[in-house]
Nucleic acid binder design. Structure first.
Length: 107
DNA sequence: AGGGTGACGATCA
DNA sequence: ATGATCGCCACCC
């Protein structure tokens, strides 16, 4: 299974009304520190609950109209905000951690 | 090999 | 709270 597939699988696990973060998804997929790869996966795939993915602290990282769109979708699912961020204490979805996967050895 | 790119993240002024 | 800095990681020239 590819790194991207594992990451996407995690994203699809986030239930309606709940959210997660780039970093948490990367860790849950077995790739701590690979938050940017989560972004990459989100860009390449479609039919994903993309709006449930936020930056650390529950902050929306999109710009402009897209940011509004994300907030709109989340509020439609019942997720509330406190200022610019969502109340992670109430809405963060907890994944069962997973041991880091071995990355390919360099040469 | 070298340099650049992101919907990142932690830290510090 | 906000911006800069630096570390991070797979990819793509």
């Amino acid at each position: 299974m590819t790194m991207e597939a594992r990451i996407l699988a995690r994203i699809r696990k986030i239930p309606r009304g709940k959210v997660s973060t780039y970093g948490a998804i990367a860790r849950a997929a077995g790739y701590p520190g690979a938050a940017r790869q989560v972004v990459r996966a989100l860009h390449r795939a479609s039919d994903l609950p993309w709006h449930r993915v936020l930056g650390a602290g529950g902050e929306i990282k999109l710009r402009g109209e897209h940011a509004f769109e994300q907030r709109f979708r989340l509020e439609a699912e019942g997720v509330t905000f406190r200022g610019r961020r969502v109340n992670m204490g109430l809405y963060e979805f907890k994944f069962l951690k997973r041991k880091a996967l071995r990355r390919k050895k360099k040469r």
